[in-house]
Design a protein around this nucleic acid. Sequence first.
DNA 1: TTCAAATATGAAAACGTTACCAAACACAAG
DNA 2: CTTGTGTTTGGTAACGTTTTCATATTTGAA
Lengths: 330, 330
Amino acid sequence: MKDVAALAKVGLSTVSRVVNGDNRVSDAKTAAVLQAIRELGFRRNDSARQLRVGATQSIGLVIENVIDPFFSHLTHAVENYSLERNTLLLSASSTRDPERTRRLVLEFCARRVDGLIVTPADTEETGYLQAEMDAGTPMVFVDRPPRGIEADTVLTGDRSGAARGVAHLIRHGHRRIACVTDRGQLHTAAQRLAGYRDALDAAAIRYDPELVYSATPSVENFRTPVARMLALDNPPTAVFTGNNRSTVAILRVMAGWDTRPALVGFDDFELADALHPGVTVVAQHPAEMGRAAAEQLFRRIGGDTGPPRHTILGTTLIPRGSGEIPPSRK
Amino acid sequence: MKDVAALAKVGLSTVSRVVNGDNRVSDAKTAAVLQAIRELGFRRNDSARQLRVGATQSIGLVIENVIDPFFSHLTHAVENYSLERNTLLLSASSTRDPERTRRLVLEFCARRVDGLIVTPADTEETGYLQAEMDAGTPMVFVDRPPRGIEADTVLTGDRSGAARGVAHLIRHGHRRIACVTDRGQLHTAAQRLAGYRDALDAAAIRYDPELVYSATPSVENFRTPVARMLALDNPPTAVFTGNNRSTVAILRVMAGWDTRPALVGFDDFELADALHPGVTVVAQHPAEMGRAAAEQLFRRIGGDTGPPRHTILGTTLIPRGSGEIPPSRK
DNA sequence: TTCAAATATGAAAACGTTACCAAACACAAG
DNA sequence: CTTGTGTTTGGTAACGTTTTCATATTTGAA
């Protein structure tokens, strides 16, 4: 910029004005500056600008993992929203590692992002989050609330959604319904399990712990426990799964079985409709969640200092066949 | 930092030294500084630091769309690699919009990212890319080469991979094989179509343009053309699809059909194995591509000025059933 | 003691911008 | 011919760091 000023034989301020489209600069000088800029191939250094101006025009997004379609849809929505706001997105996957989460959040804050959208790792020690918020970085939490912190959240109606899914199975005649979820420490898993129990209670069905299994979803983790469940004297005739990873894992476990229990999964996934039978799901709306979180964050960045706002997004039950299978004859 | 220096009654430089772990500062002062830092809740402003030091410790990633699993896997690999290098990732989806791509690249460069990994939009005017590279931002292109620019690329062996997929169908007795791909302008689509022809040629099968259809993949776009193809006098007994979006769309189109042609898809996707029959694919390795691209980019950032390097990653044929269906009886 | 070498320290310049301020100039009105 | 008002201008001080350099201060022989 100095060079441009020199070449165009004008003051530094004039160059700055031209670059910023300030119109009160004579046509002659504007032309000279533009010429010099072209000649030198000058491009303004935005990070220097931001240092001076005090806003980085960037926000951070810490999710669990981009490769999970739930989070990639959420990410895309945040991306779009912030792009409209001329803000760039620093994003990263925590991969459920609390240490990595912490590191990412801290690094984002050190770079002075204008705000942060975070899916907190479940086991997390959250003190540092509070500290960074106090230091002035607005944060909104998405999918899961942070432990012991009062802050903006955008969550799915996990409990009621799960209850609706299970009620759907009950409505189709099931009384023995298994529940397979992600690790119990996970807030969403716990909520959905609670919803499962709500539905049972509402139908006066006894809760049977033998029908419940929680673990990090994978075919290996689920195979034996699920097989064991279905070999019980009084086996479940239906299964409710607590998230898309669990649903997919269960589908793999049951691949090739001749007779399958009814299935309702929490969270939709691609090709759920193309399977046989199609998989009935309680769909979340990740894109809407992302957008809602971004909206709230920008509200905060814009200076809103109102009380924490908790947004809960509803779910949509999508019957596709697997949830409408009746209980097999005794 | 100034405040810390004042409170600790030391010079600015001393604070800086302590913050950076420079060991040649007395224990007494170190303690005082640390104390002041704690008291004031000071955190270094990394973007200011970077302005001074001259490297932003961040790279940009412009992909087509995060919600495409191919790209989300790629993204995750880049994320991991750059995190190891203590570098943050600015990422964004171009959504195939050349104008958006351009804007993103330019904005990343304006922020002086240390480097850029780009999936160029297919119809793109690429002059600005060259300009930014000349201005000193290293770039590596992934999945597709940029039009008319000599630069590092990391691509899949599209042509040979497609040929292998089609050869697989031929080996199972098919002679009438349809090819359904993404828009022809798309580099990868064109390459894969070429691979399809290679395989036909190798088997001395006449290329029949009636069996080829290209369009942006969607159920609506594919339904009629595919139905028409299969209603030909001499219909295809097998279909080769050019990418995961196309494969999924075709699966939806054919959902519920009583008799289905054999199918081999380019690019793997979740649940391909859980369908009936499982979908045979020529799998790409998006994570490896991401990693390779990141490696090459960091090599450049590290100062490597060697000639452009072109990495081509192989594909893996995964037979799952759909590709092994024999031609239906005449 | 004395001197050289090593070590600790702080002042000030730099990184590339923007923003404030005052100076210079033009022009119209009195 | 003043005076006032408005427009362009450039100088300079920030923004929050790091780094260079020169100046203490200490240390360890001689």
